[in-house]
């Protein structure tokens, strides 16, 4: 028995080793390095002195940092429902027996997922350009006034949200489709015999049974919304003003554009802690959910 245990233990560590090694070298070490940097005034070049907690003190009193954080949270909270509900509805629709051309629709909805943030930005800009964009052209054709998409903070945030949801809907839809296909057909048949309406079946059976998947989608969307960076860089560059400068972009600006790597590192440590707490709360709310089962 002990011998078998040893053999299994061997195999376990052997199988974990490659991922573990690469993860340690390219993730854990940089993580530690980042924490060390956060106590220095490193400028990306020759200066690097330990300055204790100064960076953290500065971060905690930096009103722009707070404002970027606040904007990030608002953005994440407002968008989260769309990120979860739209894929869910599409998945339900595209698993229904009544719907035709499912393969086509699923494929079409998935294609934007394949694009890089850069290309998503280019595509969305091309649609929503103020002067020569297609959307403003159509609005004018219908007799309206061109909309200054980049001018109003709310509109600019809307464009980013639209782009972000557009590029992720297919991904989450596929996760939902997989989960719906795993729900036993018997449950539905029984309900149908009992005369439960289609709408009731959705609310009373499908959605509750999909809770673990919804948790997964919620967690992934939350983290991705909080991390939103490349897309914003491609669409609004943080404008108008600083109204779409979210926290990761703020850190990047400080680090890369102003060479305040130490300060940027300190802010990123703060962010990591905040993100971890949010994820932890979501776990707790779900009481462990699928992850730890």
């Amino acid at each position: 028995m002990q011998k078998r245990k040893n053999r299994m233990s061997h195999a376990f560590w052997m199988l974990i080793f490659p991922s573990g090694l690469l993860f340690f070298v390219f993730f854990i070490i940089p993580l530690i390095l980042n924490i060390i940097l956060s106590f220095t005034n490193y400028d990306g070049w020759k200066t690097m002195n330990f300055i204790g907690l100064s960076n953290y003190q500065e971060a905690l009193t930096d009103s722009r940092f707070y404002s970027a954080l606040l904007k990030t949270f608002i953005y994440a909270i407002v968008n989260l429902p769309f990120k979860v509900i739209i894929p869910l509805l599409l998945a339900v629709l595209l698993t229904s027996d009544k719907v035709k051309f499912k393969t086509f629709s699923r494929t079409a909805i998935y294609i934007p997922v394949l694009l890089s943030s850069l290309v998503v930005g280019i595509t969305i800009n091309w649609m929503f350009s103020q002067e020569y964009g297609l959307i403003n052209f159509l609005i004018q054709q219908l007799g309206g006034q061109p909309v200054a998409w980049g001018r109003q903070p709310a509109l600019a945030t809307f464009i980013i949200s639209l782009a972000s949801t557009w590029a992720s809907t297919g991904f989450y839809m596929i996760i939902y489709i997989g989960a719906i296909n795993n729900i036993s057909h018997d449950v539905y048949e029984a309900a149908e015999i009992d005369g439960v309406s289609a709408w009731q079946r959705l609310l009373k059976i499908t959605i509750p049974l999909l809770m673990p998947t919804t948790f997964l989608v919620t967690l992934l969307s939350t983290v991705n919304l909080l991390k939103e960076y490349a897309l914003i860089q491609g669409v609004t560059q943080g404008g108008p003003g600083t109204s779409t400068t979210f926290v990761i972009q703020y850190i990047f600006d400080k680090g890369f554009n102003q060479s305040l790597y130490g300060y940027a590192a300190a802010m990123s440590v703060v962010i990591m802690i905040i993100f971890a707490v949010i994820a932890f709360i979501q776990f707790k709310v779900n009481e462990g959910g699928e992850f730890t089962k």
Partner: peptide, 10 residues
């Protein structure tokens, strides 16, 4: 205006 408010790649 949109040029100087940022938020557009125009």
């Amino acid at each position: 205006e949109v040029i100087w408010t940022g938020g557009s790649s125009d």
